[in-house]
Amino acid sequence: MSAPGIREPAEAVQRAQAGDAEAWGEIYRQFAPAIFRFCRRALPTREDAEDATTEIFMKVRGKIGLYDPSRSFSAWLYKVSANHCWDMLRRRKGRQDKETEDVAELPLAHPEPGQLERLIEQSTSEQVRGALERLQPRARMALVLRYYSEMSYEEIAETLKVRRAFVGVVLLRARHELRQALERPGELAAGGTR
């Protein structure tokens, strides 16, 4: 996974690993907004996102000694965040169980390219965010991992605990759900909550 646009805080991380509280503050200030946004996109409510952000940074602080400096810090941070958010969603178990079956069985309708093009061109960012909030947790998480965190298929498979070959299906189904939500803005997708 790459995290373009982020200046890697190698020096601050090194100091934080040595127990420097100031360095930890720098890291927090640099990454908190992005991680909050990540959580906001992945989780159903703003409160969940706030809690998750706090917990992720506490977790990262506790585990900073385990971070391998030869790898990208931001990628590691997103990995921890993804695992944390997905765990949170999985804990809401009933919904999750139902969804697993749904994903495996639902048929995929082939889109009509011209119609799809119109839908995509007419949709605004705000509408997409609104539609995202109404998606099933797994669909939503998959899209966030891929198009916000830019995780690879391997990393997505690892986070969502699915086979790598299944990631494409998950992503495509997520796009279909999203399109449905964009087409019918009033409807609430099963599992989507606010």
Binding site: I6, R29, Q30, A34, Y148
Partner: peptide, 9 residues
């Protein structure tokens, strides 16, 4: 936070 917020992409 005063420092610029990091974000991917």
């Amino acid at each position: 936070p005063a420092a610029p917020a990091a974000q991917p992409a």
